[in-house]
């Protein structure tokens, strides 16, 4: 069976998390972008660790997270 659920990935250099459901709009990655669709030479936006040193994690969010930052400020 193919597991097509959206996944979360954690940077093993600093702990930055990438969530496929959320993407990283502030870094030009749209919500819903699969990990496999991110270029292989992509690096952690916080610490520069290369993509191959991220780990897929199945860890739930803390209550109240994730906070979605709207691009449109009131």
């Amino acid at each position: 069976m193919i597991d097509d659920a959206l996944k979360r990935w954690l940077c093993l250099g600093c702990g930055f998390s990438y969530d496929e459901a959320l993407g990283l709009p502030e870094h030009g990655i749209a919500p819903g972008t699969r990990w496999s669709e991110i270029p292989e030479d992509w690096c952690c936006p916080d610490c520069g660790t290369p993509k191959l040193r991220f780990e897929m994690v199945e860890i739930a969010y803390a209550p109240g997270q994730p906070v979605i930052h709207s691009a449109v400020r009131q």
Binding site: R8, V57, I59, A60, Y61, P66
Partner: peptide, 9 residues
Amino acid sequence: MLPDRLLLP
């Protein structure tokens, strides 16, 4: 250590 929840306070 990995945490048991992401983005804790």
